[in-house]
Amino acid sequence: MPKAKLDAIDRKIIDALQVEGRMTAQQLADKVGLSPSPCARRVRQMEDMGVITGYTAVIDQDLVDLPISVFASIKLERQRESELERFNAAIARWPEVVDCYLMTGQRDYLLRIVVRDLHAYERFLKEKLTRLDGVASIETSFALAQIKRSNRLPVEP
């Protein structure tokens, strides 16, 4: 997909929405120095182009009783396209996997898995991840504390 051509106002809109996605069209327009109609038009255009892919609430893991973040590095037996696609499809079905990256280096994938407790991770590992064909090895690390979490990209106006 070609990169979107964004001007300074588009970038201001993106930056403002990343901080507060629930602001009204008037509030957003005031923040970026436009009237509401052209501002709403720009937002709609960026949604149509796929620059803005959605709006979501940021949830505190601890308060919804999902305090454990597990990072799993996965090595596949082979890196053929069909094996990568099969792995990607399986990961997409599993709600415990909240982030998944195809990596360079010694490991093929890095997953962030969110669970209630160690038993839940053990079930996930035994019932899902280790049953997936083509997985050669899994290395797991548990996060002790979350120092920073952000969904905000460093888009500069």
Rank of each mutant, 00 (worst) to 15 (best):
L66Y: 06
R123V: 15
K31V: 05
A120Q: 12
T130K: 15
K148G: 06
R22F: 12
S150A: 00
V98P: 04
A40S: 13
F87T: 06
L28I: 07
R152P: 00
Q106M: 10
A29R: 04
V64F: 08
V32W: 05
S141Q: 13
T53N: 11
V135A: 05
R11H: 09
I74D: 01
P67N: 08
R131E: 09
M46F: 02
Q27G: 07
D99M: 15
M1D: 13
Q45T: 14
R41K: 14
M1W: 12
L84P: 03
G21Y: 10
V135H: 08
L76T: 05
G50T: 03
E127M: 13
I9V: 12
R149A: 10
K148A: 05
G21K: 05
L118Q: 14
D30I: 08
A120I: 07
N151T: 10
R44M: 07
T53E: 07
L144M: 13
V70F: 06
K5L: 09
A90F: 07
S69E: 11
V51F: 01
A16D: 05
A145M: 02
D30S: 06
L76F: 10
L6G: 06
R44I: 04
M49D: 13
G105R: 01
L63Q: 14
R112G: 07
A89D: 11
L144N: 04
D7F: 08
R93Q: 14
A72V: 15
S73Q: 04
P2N: 13
F71Y: 12
Q106D: 11
A4R: 09
L111A: 01
P157F: 07
L63R: 15
L129G: 02
A90N: 12
T24P: 07
T24F: 06
R93M: 13
Q61T: 14
R80Q: 14
D62S: 04
G134S: 09
L34I: 02
Q79M: 00
Q61M: 14
Q45L: 12
R107L: 11
D117K: 05
P2I: 06
V64T: 09
E77K: 14
E77V: 14
D7K: 09
S37M: 15
P157R: 05
S141H: 13
S35Y: 09
S73L: 14
V19I: 12
V98D: 01
N151M: 15
A136F: 06
Q18T: 04
P67G: 05
M46G: 00
K3C: 07
N151F: 14
L111P: 00
L125F: 15
V64W: 08
E77L: 02
V114T: 12
A89E: 14
T56S: 14
V114G: 00
A89I: 12
I59K: 07
L118G: 13
I147P: 00
L153P: 01
E83F: 09
V43E: 04
E156K: 11
V58P: 02
L110F: 08
N151S: 15
S82P: 02
M23D: 03
E122R: 15
G33I: 08
I138S: 01
R149K: 11
S35D: 10
A8G: 03
I13K: 03
F87Q: 01
